[in-house]
Each structure stands twice: as structure tokens, then as C-alpha cells.
Amino acid sequence: MSLEARTASLSQRHALVDRELEAEAHRPMPDQAVIAKLKREKLRLKDEISRLSTN
């Protein structure tokens, strides 16, 4: 997989996690554990995208 393809894949996953996070946050009784997990995953993806972009 090329660097561009990997970055694009990570960006798509980041956008998906962002949508999942928004959906969970807007539920009547959001699960804080799920929100925390999604935030960690989103940050991990962002860090990986950033790391790949600087190489």
C-alpha cells in the first residue's frame, strides 16, 4: 500500500470515527466510556496521519 493510499485510508477512518462520536454525543443518554474510546481512537488516527505526512 502506498503512503498516499495509507493516509487516505486513515483519513476515511478518522472521518468515520468522528461521525460515530457525534452520533454518540447526541444520543439521549450518551455512554461516556464509548465517547472516551472514540476520542482516543480519533486522536490515534490523527497522530498517525500526521506522522506519515511528515515523512
Results as ranks from 00 to 15, higher is better:
residue 1 M to R: 15
residue 23 A to E: 13
residue 39 K to Y: 02
residue 3 L to K: 15
residue 18 D to C: 03
residue 55 N to S: 09
residue 45 L to H: 03
residue 52 L to E: 10
residue 53 S to L: 09
residue 23 A to W: 10
residue 48 E to I: 06
residue 4 E to H: 07
residue 16 L to Q: 14
residue 54 T to Q: 12
residue 5 A to Q: 12
residue 7 T to D: 05
residue 40 R to K: 14
residue 23 A to S: 14
residue 21 L to Q: 09
residue 25 A to W: 03
residue 25 A to S: 07
residue 50 S to E: 07
residue 6 R to F: 00
residue 46 K to I: 00
residue 44 R to Q: 13
residue 51 R to V: 02
residue 51 R to I: 02
residue 39 K to E: 10
residue 49 I to P: 00
residue 7 T to C: 04
residue 3 L to V: 10
residue 17 V to S: 02
residue 35 I to Y: 00
residue 12 Q to L: 08
residue 15 A to L: 02
residue 11 S to I: 11
residue 13 R to K: 15
residue 18 D to N: 08
residue 8 A to I: 06
residue 25 A to P: 01
residue 2 S to K: 14
residue 17 V to F: 00
residue 18 D to W: 06
residue 35 I to F: 02
residue 36 A to G: 04
residue 34 V to P: 00
residue 35 I to S: 02
residue 51 R to C: 00
residue 30 P to Q: 12
residue 30 P to C: 01
residue 4 E to S: 12
residue 41 E to C: 06
residue 20 E to A: 03
residue 40 R to M: 08
residue 47 D to A: 08
residue 44 R to E: 11
residue 37 K to N: 13
residue 14 H to E: 12
residue 46 K to G: 04
residue 17 V to M: 02
residue 8 A to V: 10
residue 4 E to Y: 06
residue 11 S to A: 13
residue 29 M to P: 09
residue 35 I to H: 05
residue 53 S to V: 01
residue 39 K to Q: 11
residue 35 I to D: 01
residue 6 R to H: 09
residue 15 A to W: 05
residue 5 A to I: 06
residue 17 V to H: 05
residue 47 D to C: 08
residue 43 L to K: 15
residue 43 L to E: 14
residue 20 E to D: 13
residue 8 A to P: 05
residue 20 E to P: 02
residue 26 H to I: 03
residue 10 L to D: 06
residue 44 R to M: 06
residue 48 E to F: 03
residue 45 L to T: 01
residue 49 I to S: 01
residue 31 D to Q: 11
residue 55 N to H: 05
residue 13 R to W: 05
residue 47 D to E: 15
residue 3 L to R: 13
